[in-house]
Amino acid sequence: MTSVNYHHWRILLTALLLCILAGCGPNKVIVQGNFPPPLIEPLPLTLGVWFGDDFRQHEFFDGTKSRNESSWVVNTGAAQVQMWNNLLAGMFEQIVVLDSPPKAGRSSPIVDAVLIPHVEELQYAIPAHTQIKVYEIWMRYRFELVTIGGQPIAEWAMSSYGKTPTAFLQSDQEAVNLAAVMALRDAGANFVGRFSQIPTVRGLLLDSGALTDAIDP
């Protein structure tokens, strides 16, 4: 009987120790959200898209500390890929997700252009920083539009912003996740509005005869 009790206490203490140790590590948030397809007439183009490793595995943490010392690690990579896949699939007649980057001499698959998104910068603010009860995330993207052979067609930057208020029974993790989802949705909205306004892209759309059907808000 005594040995059984001792065994139970040992398990309990180990569990307690693990809980305490887990509490010392950074809060990790893997961004998850709902990213609907855009409600627009698709552009009559076949677009290739290449998500680099930096993009697929994108994460951010407190910039003043190392990754392990940071109290926050927010992983946006999977959500980025999900959002851009949904957005581009609804925005273009056909998209082809490439398994390797465009490069000189490459000729397949046959696409009108290849889009390569990059997250250049990300900043965040939580109520502890700003005294305002709002969680905020800013992102700055850089887009490259190239041929399948790697020849540049256009390059432009774009920003996005998401915020969410503090709410009763909402944890910091949930609030940061929601702010990141809002920032991703805003990125999609901004991209839809701006894509056909980029001068070289506009030229490409005119050449392909797609401009009359193009979204032109």
Partner: peptide, 15 residues
């Protein structure tokens, strides 16, 4: 949320 998703991206804060 159902409306915002159905009409995405036309009723986002930006648009």
């Amino acid at each position: 949320l159902e409306f915002l998703n159905a009409l995405y991206p036309w009723f986002e804060p930006r648009t």
